[in-house]
Design a protein around this nucleic acid. Structure first.
Length: 413
RNA sequence: GCGAUCGUAGCUCAGUUGGUUAGAGCGCCGGUUUGUGGUACCGGAGGUCGCGGGUUCGAACCCCGUCGAUCGCCCCA
């Protein structure tokens, strides 16, 4: 016997209740995005490597050590997408989607990152994603966040709060960054090893360090608010007042930053409240939905300056929070009591399904045990068939749908 | 990439200081019983103990490596 190959590390085979929860997340997302008139797009799973390296930033962890990149047979470097936004931006530019701006699009599918797998973190994982491209107004941020909020509500997820921050415009962000570097450099030796490294690479990240040594200095670090231009401040105010008007609850998170280079202005994450049920289910993965405004991204891909805002959420993480979902209830089980009734049973089954009844057939194994096996599938009704044909139904509740499906056939020629 | 814990039947797990032929429950298959909404009893199949080395008279158990999972760090969704 040849040996069965192992699945790739960090991939999952999803089945049963988990698969139902996964599908529920996707179906709910599809329904909600239509309410907000986000148009469906399908994107390639791989792109030229530069799409991601230029858009996301060479120095980010995602690009520098987490991408699945390879040379194709033509010698071109390609990469399995580690996120949606860069690919959508590329498509926007290469297809001339500017003509549709402001463009609201939504998609979902698999993404790939070479990371150490953990609970709620996989090498092939899945996200739902929503973007508004070509909209500079704070109203776009509000709409995008309102949709995210409604999605979580309709998924039945509770104990999750929108953490909101602004990174300011490009100038604000740079001034703040410089001030942070200065602030932390003065105490560099007392910071954690990780943060000493972050000081050079990504000083904003020091702000949400969990290390006790860093937290002392984070408290009195310069705040973005001190560096916001009047425009940036007005923008953020418009976003927050819009959220209030839309009834979206939020909390200001001054130290919330995003890991990717392209973010400007609004940055946000939906995070489980401390000690909540949701926090417990997610382990150390806290963010279930995150995003922000990325006004600078199109230029990094050689396009005209184009304001845009978007978010993505991990389907697996959301699925962990929606809890156990039953598979669709079996309405009618056709029980073939002996093989002489097989033809009649197949005909009956076909009528039921054509009539919209969820139906299955039990016709294998010992005739004497078929009834027990049928019962174990927990059908609402069992229809018994033998050599005489269909001869009886048992079960509780309304049988009208089943009767209608059967009769429909007998009255039509 | 770093640290910790773990890997025994399809699933959940026992397995004594290293000692005969590795067990249980559930599930699966069959028989008897029951005879129409989860009956009871009996029997059966199913495991190179993740994989590869090593120590030993002897390894599921000890050591090393490797693959995988889980938890934390990092990062992120």
């Amino acid at each position: 016997m040849p040996k069965t190959p192992q699945a790739i590390r960090g991939t999952q085979d999803i089945f049963g209740a988990d698969a139902e929860a996964f599908a529920f997340v996707v179906e709910t997302f599809e329904r909600v995005r239509k309410l907000y008139r986000f148009r469906r797009v399908e994107m390639p799973v791989f792109e030229k490597t530069e799409v991601f390296s230029r858009a996301i930033g060479e120095t980010t962890d995602v690009v520098s050590k987490e991408m699945y990149s390879f040379d194709d047979r033509g010698g071109e470097s390609l990469t399995l997408r580690p996120e949606f936004t860069a690919g959508i931006a590329r498509a926007f530019l290469s297809n001339g989607w500017q003509q549709h701006a402001p463009l609201k699009v939504a998609t979902h599918g698999p993404l790939f990152r070479y990371e150490r797998p953990q609970k709620g973190r996989y090498r092939q994982f899945h996200q739902i994603d929503a973007e508004i491209i070509g909209a500079a107004e704070p109203q776009a941020d509000v709409e995008l966040l309102a949709m995210a909020d409604q999605l979580l509500t309709e998924l039945g997820i509770e104990g999750v709060t929108l953490h909101l921050n602004t990174l300011g415009d490009g100038d604000s962000r740079e001034a703040w960054r410089a001030a942070l570097v200065e602030h932390f450099r003065s105490v560099k030796d007392e910071l954690s090893e990780d943060s000493q490294e972050r000081l050079e690479k990504n000083p904003l990240r020091i702000l949400d360090s969990k290390d006790r040594r860093d937290k002392r200095f984070v408290a009195d670090a310069p705040k973005i608010d001190q560096f916001l231009s009047d425009d940036a401040r007005a923008f953020f105010d418009a976003v927050t007042s819009g959220l209030d008007a839309a009834g979206v609850k939020w909390t200001r998170a001054e130290s919330l930053v995003r890991g990717l280079d392209y973010y400007r202005h609004t940055a946000f994450e939906f995070i489980p409240d401390e000690g909540s049920d949701a926090a417990g289910k997610l382990g150390s993965q806290s963010t279930i939905l995150g995003g922000g405004r990325y006004d600078g991204l199109m230029e990094s891909l050689g396009g005209a300056p184009t304001p845009a805002v978007g978010w993505a959420a991990g389907i697996e993480r959301l699925a962990m929070l929606v809890g156990e979902l039953e598979e669709e209830r079996l309405e009618a089980m056709v029980l073939v009591e002996n093989d002489a009734g097989m033809a009649a049973a197949i005909e009956l089954l076909s009528d039921l399904r054509a009539g919209g009844v969820t139906a299955d057939i039990m016709a294998s194994g010992s005739p004497k045990k078929r009834y027990d096996k049928a019962v174990k599938q927990k059908p609402q009704h069992i229809l018994r068939v033998d050599e005489r044909g269909y001869h009886g139904i048992s079960g509780e509740g309304d049988t009208s749908r089943i009767v209608a499906a059967i009769n429909r056939h007998s009255v039509s020629p």
